[in-house]
Amino acid sequence: MSVLIFIDHADGHVKKASLEALTYGADLAKQLGVAAEGLLLGTVTEDLAALGKYGISKVNQVSNEALNNLDAQVYAKAIAEAATATGATVIVFSHNQTGKAVAARVSARLKAGLVAGAISLPDTSNGFVVKKTVFSGKAFANVNITSPIKIISLNPNSYKITAGEGAATVNQLSITPDAAKVKVTAVNKVSGEVPLTEAEIVVSGGRGLKGPENWGILEDLGHALHAAMACSRPVADAHWRPHHEHVGQTGVQVAPNLYIAVGISGAIQHLAGVNRSKVIVVINKDPEAPFFKAADYGIVGDAFEILPKLTEEIKKIKG
């Protein structure tokens, strides 16, 4: 009996979303009175034993460099074998890009019920009931997993990472992965920017900024906050900003601690991409903008005057 937490990594490092999953899995193991173990496929440069500080006692590794590229089919088989080898009764993923590719496959393979997009620990007082977001963040569902093995994939940025003391033992699993049917031929990463889906603070601009030449003042605010940059759909469609910055129903869905929307009216399709943000700040010159109804804080006024002042004030407290 154990909780097995899948540890996702890129460029030799464990992803932040997986540190959330590790903390979550360790807390869940405590709740169930079982051990918490991690599982890493492939190789990383950092010290795996140090992951013990997130509350796990053991890190299982399939140390094979072929696994540094994702093939969901190969991953699912290896994870299922590892789950059987370690006697896992609960498997935890992050509901990030990798989790979305792999967790469902493992679920079908092991006939283990999956709750995808969980936001809190399960209620185990009567069954195994996990709360997840539904209707694009407009509601929650409490879902009971009825199979013997249970799989949870945790929404990024919904569980706080806690690091304490302790080291994990590292255990090499002798699992031979299948040959990949998916070949990675190119990787294009935007360097030097905070990835939108991992960002704790997101600064987003809309048509109210009037043109791409005006993005400098928004970027200044973004830099001061170490935030990721985003935009509304009309801005991406007009090619003022790249498409990967478009947040909304059909773009990227984000759930940062702080979302600052400047010059965005707040159409329902935009809100569907941002309404899981913990705190929303809206700056808009139109007091009737629907976004104010979804906001926690707001300023009615001219973004071109407000943004430079805001950046300056933030620099003061950030020292």
Partner: peptide
């Protein structure tokens, strides 16, 4: 089926926007 929905809930209503003068 491996799961069943027990119940749905709506998020708590937002307290309302706190406006700050420009």
């Amino acid at each position: 089926a491996l799961t069943s929905v027990v119940s749905f809930e709506l998020p708590p209503a937002k307290a309302g926007v706190k406006l700050v003068p420009a």
